[in-house]
């Protein structure tokens, strides 16, 4: 009994469902479509560029010691001196390769004087500035033997700069 009546109900209800179904589709489809869209950022070109730049920087990077400049001078060739410059007694610094324990010996103003210890060089040069007739404008003539290492010469030159001398010249020994 129940089976028959059910079949009849279904048959009767069929046209009604088929009529409703298209209406639902029309209203809901666009909404579902919008929800399913996912915004995807395409990172591939950016990654390509970044990797290229990174690779370039890795290749060209140098992890070396930072270097700087010490301003240096040679004596001017012309004999013409500035008209109002006071003649000064220069400080002469001799760098020779005859040190007993070290790589070079440094003497100030006298080639036969006892050598100055490298760590005392700045203080000794600065001490000269306190004497009458000496100031920062006093020329320092740095003369080094040919066999002395360039590192030692620069060290002495740097010491004169550190002692506040402004006119330091490389001269022939």
């Amino acid at each position: 009994m129940t089976g028959r009546s059910d079949t009849g109900g279904v048959l009767r209800a069929l046209p009604a469902t088929s009529a409703i179904a298209p209406r639902r589709r029309r209203t809901r489809r666009p909404r579902r479509h919008v929800l399913r869209d996912v915004l995807v950022l395409n990172l591939t070109p950016m990654l390509d560029v970044i990797f290229n730049v990174l690779l370039f920087l890795i290749v060209v990077t140098r992890f070396s010691t930072p270097e700087g400049y010490l301003p240096a001078r040679l004596p001017a060739r012309s004999a013409a001196a500035p008209g109002f410059d006071v003649p000064r007694v220069p400080v002469r610094v001799y760098v020779t390769g005859d040190a007993v324990g070290g790589s070079c010996a440094v003497r100030i103003n006298d080639r036969n004087a006892p050598p100055v210890a490298p760590e005392a060089l700045i203080a000794q040069l600065a001490g000269l500035l306190k004497q009458p007739g000496f100031d920062e404008r006093t020329p320092v003539y740095l003369s080094a033997d040919d066999g002395v290492k360039w590192d030692d010469v620069v060290n002495v030159y740097n010491a004169a700069l550190a002692a506040s001398y402004q006119r330091i010249f490389f001269v022939r020994s």
Partner: peptide
């Protein structure tokens, strides 16, 4: 050796370049 650097310094002097910069750490 300083002699090697001095040769170049003298070259600078010949070209009337009396001021230059020495590179150091």
């Amino acid at each position: 050796d300083y002699a090697r650097v001095r040769e170049v310094m003298e070259l600078l002097g010949e070209h009337a370049i009396s001021k230059f910069h020495v590179v150091a750490e």
